[in-house]
Design a protein around this nucleic acid. Structure first.
Lengths: 214, 214
DNA sequence: GAGGAGCGATACCGATCAGTATCTGATGAG
DNA sequence: CTCATCAGATACTGATCGGTATCGCTCCTC
């Protein structure tokens, strides 16, 4: 069987080096079952290796969790960077692009929500490195959104960024618990409506209207 | 030491019957540490009783989890009922009252989020009774919000209810991960802005403007 | 061809988990 | 007074947890 690794290459699982196979297996199992519900033995089994090999690359299970979350966070950041590169001078299109990225992920999420939200539920210790990592990532995302709102000339950028954050997070939660159907379409319409509620000055609007739904 | 049980009575812990003490202890520990992280022995210890007494009242740990979530859901429903009773003929005030209830809970939530969101992260099995309970509760909340949006004469009640749901859930998530400061004030302003964006016809507006921030 | 690092396999450690068995004491109803 | 019921305490089961020790084997390098 073939599958696709994090870099997007097609490859047989068995041909990847053990460390990568372990991270892929951890990604799959942590996301699907939860952190505490998955034992290191199960990760090693799914990676086609052994517990000993796992502990040769990661000092503890916590270290593996942290590395997994670091990769997920980097994936998100990279995706947002790609959106930024696609619309360098159009902050509104970037906001819509970020929303589109989240919306496109919702059907796959189905009943398993955002990995960060789920991980935080299992990491009550505020000093835990993995938790610090998530909090830093979320803070960075909010900063990015706030900056985009400033550049989009929204009258209250902090407020708008908070609203975007709430809506994006809430869409994932509501998809996970199954209460809102077709959350992806709703999310896009809602984000669009929030932007429309704060019309930009004419100068900013000239660039920001067309390239939205890339 | 005294504390307040779920019915709001002041009482010494030791004077409550064991079943109530167990539920109170479970509520506290599950909410603070997570479901999987808390053992039945710890619950029994905190309740001032023993594991055997716990198993006399609950068949399994899962049954205790389910009962705990049932109580939390009932508490939320009761709070929303109280809001409805306070503004029987003012759906907009009810929506703001629900938002106020959530907003007022945010400071207490601090770094531990909504119990339902956290529980879902630890219950990946869609057939799990506790999960069904949460999904039914969330579906009921959305129905209630949709009904309020209809009665508030919002032009697209389904869309507005979805947006309220997203914003309410997102505010809790963002409070948990610490990215948004003063989320309670932001939440109230945002919900107000959503209502203002969809002005009701004059007939509905007459009743719905004053009693908002009860 | 020799040597060393990385790998797979197996067996093990102490701790903790959910759940059970058994015994004793208190309480409350008849 | 008696008896049944519930509560507390202790000890136990079998399974699983994270983490470790030890063994060959393979493969790459010099």
């Amino acid at each position: 069987m073939t599958n696709t690794d994090r870099a997007g290459r097609q490859s047989r699982v068995a041909t990847l080096p053990p460390r990568e196979r372990i991270l892929d297996a951890a990604e799959e199992l942590f996301a699907r079952e939860g952190i505490k519900a998955v034992g290191v033995q199960a990760i090693a089994d799914r990676a086609g290796t052994t517990k000993m090999a796992l502990y040769r690359h990661f000092a503890t299970k916590d270290a593996l969790v942290e590395e997994w979350l670091r990769i997920v966070a980097a994936d998100y950041t990279a995706a947002f960077d790609r959106v930024a590169d696609a619309h360098p001078d159009d902050p509104r299109a970037q906001i819509l692009g970020i929303a589109r990225f989240i919306a496109d992920g919702l059907p796959d999420i189905s009943h398993r929500g955002c990995p960060f939200i789920n991980a935080l539920a299992e990491l009550p210790d505020r000093a835990h490195p993995a938790r610090r990592l998530i909090e830093a990532h979320k803070a960075g995302q909010l900063r990015r959104l706030t900056d985009l709102c400033v550049r989009a000339a929204l009258p209250d950028p902090d407020e708008a960024a908070a609203e975007f954050t709430f809506v994006l997070e809430g869409a994932q939660v509501s998809t996970q618990n199954g209460s809102v159907q077709r959350a992806d379409e709703r999310l896009m319409r809602i984000v669009g409506a929030i932007l429309d509620r704060h019309p930009a000055p004419a100068a900013a609007r000239r660039a920001g209207s067309a390239a939205a739904r890339g």
